[in-house]
Structures are given as C-alpha cells and as structure tokens.
Simulated assay, not measured.
Amino acid sequence: MAEKILEVEDLKINFRTYNGKVQAIRDISFDLYKGETLAIVGESGSGKSVTTRSLMGLLAKNAEVDHGSIKFRGDEIIGKSEDQMQKLRGAEIAMIFQDPMTSLDPTMKIGQQIAEPLIKHKKMSKKEAWGKALEMMKLVGIPNAEAHINDYPHQFSGGMRQRIVIAIAMINRPEVLIADEPTTALDVTIQAQILDLMKKVQKEINSSIIFITHDLGVVAGMADRVAVMYAGQIIEIGTVDEVFNFPQHPYTWGLLNSMPTTETERGELEAIPGTPPDLLEPPVGDPFAARNKYALAIDEEQKPPFFQLSPTHFAATWLLDERAPEVVPPLEVQKRWARYQAAHPEADRKQAVAVDATAVLGTEDNN
C-alpha cells in the first residue's frame, strides 16, 4: 500500500460576511498518497481552491475552520501558528498559482526568486542557492538559462513565467505540490508542455500533486485519482478510469456530457442547466437536486450518503440506493459504461453499498 502523505477528514470551513456565514466547505474527507496526482474538479465556486488553500493556512481573514482535521504525515496542521506554517510552506507543501504575473515579484530577478526558498528553508549561501536555481531552470525547460537567470519576469512569455513559478514551487523538493489551475491562462500547445513538465519534475522529485481544474480534458492525462466537488462537498471520488468511464453521480454525468471527445458528433454537447446553490443557506438534501433531471423525492429531504462501488470508487447519490428506480443516463455516459464494463465484468452499480463519508479515507491507491 502506498504511503499516506495527507489526510483531510470531516473538514468544514465558513466565511463570515455581512449577510451571514457562507458554508464554503461542508464536511469533506479525502487522502493523498506518496507520488500520486489527485485532481479536484468542479465548477467555479465549488470549493476547490478554498480546500487547497486551507492545507497551507492561506485562508482569508474572514474564514473560520468550523471543525475537521488536516494531517500532514500524521501531524495536525489546523491550529498551527503562522511561524509554524511558514516552515511548512515552500519546504514541505508548495503551491503553483493560477496567474504567474501575480505570483512573481516584478522587481526581483527570477534567479533570486527561485533561490529564495533555499536560502530561507535550507539556510544555503546565496552562491549555492543560485547554483541550484540555475539547475532548476534547466530542469523546467528554460532555454539558455545562464543568460536569463538575471532577467525580470516581464522579460518572459506567459509559458516561461509559469515554468519559473513551477521552479520556485519545486526547488525545495516538497512532499506535496498544489497546482491551482496552472494552465488556465495558457494556449493549448503551451498547456500541454506545462503538464508534461509537471509530470517530469514530479517523477524527478517523487512529490504528490493536488491538481485543481475545471478542465476534465486536462485531468484525463494528468491524474491518478479524481475528486468531483459541488457546492462545497465531494460528491464522487475514484480512479481516473472509474470516474471517467463508470461515473455514477448525475453532476459527473453532466460534466462529462459537456466535454467534447473525438467521438462527439455535431450538436451533441449539453450544458448543465441552472446555477449552484446559495451557500448562505445550503439545501437540506442533495445540493445538486435543483439542477438534476434525475432527482428523486428524497433528494429534496435528505443528504445522500456515500455509496461504495469498489475499494477506490465512491459516489454520493440516492440513485445508487437499492430502492431507487432505474434511470437511463446520457448517451455519452452509456457508451463509457459499456466500454468500462466490457473491460471490468465485475463492475456492477447495483452492488453499491452505503458507507460513512469518512470511508473515502484509507482507500488504497491503484498506482
């Protein structure tokens, strides 16, 4: 079994506002294993970034952790002082932010910015740290690194700036790397290069990655496991193969059905109707019920438990209850199911078993 690096259990985070408490994260649990990539996907506002910022203690001043636990290598993070968190940030847990121009200091040479974490955390001399910075620049694919180590951020293209941000995040060989939509502002060609680079550097330093995105196409080639978030909750989690090819939650169906593939015919894509719920007053039952054409009466009254389909696959939907009627998912999802079940004859959604939400912790990764 792979070594467990991170455990998030029963986490709930609120934001205090003039209108009341926004329940941004509502009782989520997941784990992260050594060397794996866990993708967290969902619409804007689903809680992806808030979840990962809580891992680094970077929440806004009006945020409060209502309850829950975040353990890094068995050590509780919640409640640590700012000084204690600063020792973790950049050394053990690092983050690649979405926009490199807001992440980089425009007044500092990039060599200095890459070397700074080594000087702060490793107490290296400036000369040694700059030497390591040069090595990292070459590793992340910055051409003619010796000539550009004294350049400033504005002298680089968007793709090169993102490489610099990756170099800064990885210079201390962190155990956990959080990538917050790192390719959103890049064109498709540069996006592919950055994703290949992240996989290469991950293999080089054997780090674990939490990859935040709303782009399922990126997830398919990047992640080992996928957690689907909606309205501050994880509503489905499993391996990439399970979530992409044997999805069970109607929200996951909607995400996949709105994503073009090489087999998609003209006019087949469908958007998910409606908007996410107001988290000042979250729904009592399934938060997706109001947008879900497959919703049952109980979805309006009671939150669904997680149903376990395999040792690694869980989905929170009443459609998996043995008392639920049979529903016909979108055609694209039916095709995915057929391919998956042909390769995995043992897969049977009728055998799903209701489990406690925290059961997603402790599942063994299939890497």
Results as ranks from 00 to 15, higher is better:
132 K>I: 09
144 N>Y: 12
135 E>P: 02
163 R>F: 04
159 G>I: 11
135 E>N: 12
160 M>Y: 01
137 M>Y: 02
142 I>T: 01
166 I>S: 06
149 I>A: 10
149 I>N: 07
151 D>S: 15
144 N>I: 06
162 Q>N: 10
154 H>T: 04
164 I>M: 03
137 M>V: 02
140 V>Y: 04
146 E>W: 10
146 E>M: 08
136 M>Q: 12
131 G>E: 15
141 G>D: 06
148 H>D: 01
131 G>H: 13
131 G>S: 15
135 E>S: 11
166 I>K: 06
139 L>G: 00
134 L>T: 06
129 A>P: 00
130 W>G: 00
155 Q>L: 04
159 G>P: 09
134 L>E: 05
138 K>A: 15
163 R>L: 05
142 I>S: 03
137 M>N: 00
142 I>D: 01
149 I>Y: 09
159 G>L: 14
133 A>K: 04
128 E>S: 14
149 I>E: 05
154 H>S: 06
166 I>P: 02
136 M>T: 07
145 A>S: 14
130 W>P: 00
129 A>C: 07
150 N>M: 12
152 Y>Q: 09
137 M>Q: 02
139 L>S: 10
159 G>A: 13
144 N>A: 13
159 G>K: 09
142 I>Q: 03
151 D>P: 00
132 K>P: 03
161 R>A: 02
136 M>W: 04
158 G>K: 08
160 M>L: 14
151 D>V: 00
135 E>M: 07
155 Q>D: 03
153 P>A: 12
143 P>Y: 11
164 I>H: 02
165 V>L: 10
150 N>P: 02
155 Q>R: 11
138 K>G: 12
164 I>P: 02
148 H>N: 13
129 A>H: 01
141 G>R: 08
137 M>P: 01
146 E>N: 10
128 E>K: 15
149 I>S: 07
153 P>D: 08
152 Y>R: 08
146 E>Y: 10
158 G>T: 09
142 I>P: 00
135 E>D: 15
146 E>H: 06
137 M>H: 02
144 N>Q: 14
141 G>T: 07
148 H>L: 13
156 F>G: 00
158 G>V: 10
129 A>Y: 02
166 I>M: 09
147 A>F: 06
143 P>T: 07
160 M>F: 05
134 L>Q: 07
147 A>I: 06
133 A>P: 05
134 L>A: 08
163 R>I: 00
147 A>E: 15
129 A>V: 04
138 K>Y: 05
163 R>W: 07
